[in-house]
Amino acid sequence: MSPAKKPPAKKQTAASAEFLLRLYVAGHTPKSLTAFENLKTICEEHLEGRYRLEVVDLLENPSLARGHQILALPALVRQLPPPVKKIIGDFSNVERVLVGLDLVPVTAGRRA
């Protein structure tokens, strides 16, 4: 996944990053690419300048999967702000992604 190959840099407002996100993928599959594109779009739209996104390719670092109990892929882990949240899928359902990231007011129905 070509864009993902610059992991620590993506939209980095350095230390002031409010949202610390980590995307786990396994290889440069179409699914990974779609997920990355979708995620990027959502982040740019809703979190502009407030987030930092890391991409971890498990094929390169398989041992990292253990830490966040990664099972399904692609998976996004919101490390900051707490609590840790986990979202899986290709992020095509924007609504659910926003719910998962706690970016939607509770009234929008969290546990749909």
Binding site: A65, I70, I87
Partner: peptide, 19 residues
Amino acid sequence: EIEETGEYDLEGLFVRLDH
């Protein structure tokens, strides 16, 4: 703890097992 947002697979399981 898991929010499903579309297509996914269990590749993570495979990766871990393989590792």
